[in-house]
């Protein structure tokens, strides 16, 4: 599954790890994150993430 990078602060969302602090199970793809999920570091919205090449 693809990793996504926050264009604001550089945080990388890795589906293998999820975001357990905010209720996202490991194994959750970026596309499956809820629309109101925000970057756990800086609060940027989902649409500010870019696929990591």
């Amino acid at each position: 599954m693809d990793k996504y990078v926050c264009s604001v602060c550089g945080y990388v969302y890795d589906p293998a790890n999820g975001d357990p602090d905010n209720g996202i199970e490991p194994g959750t793809s970026f596309a499956d994150l809820p629309n109101d999920w925000v970057c756990p570091v800086c609060g940027a919205a989902k649409d500010e993430f870019e696929k990591q090449e």
């Binding site: 604001v8 602060c9 570091v41 800086c42 609060g43 940027a44």
Partner: peptide
């Protein structure tokens, strides 16, 4: 008021 990344988390 949280102001994350202005200019630190």
């Amino acid at each position: 008021l949280e102001t994350r990344m202005l200019h630190w988390p």
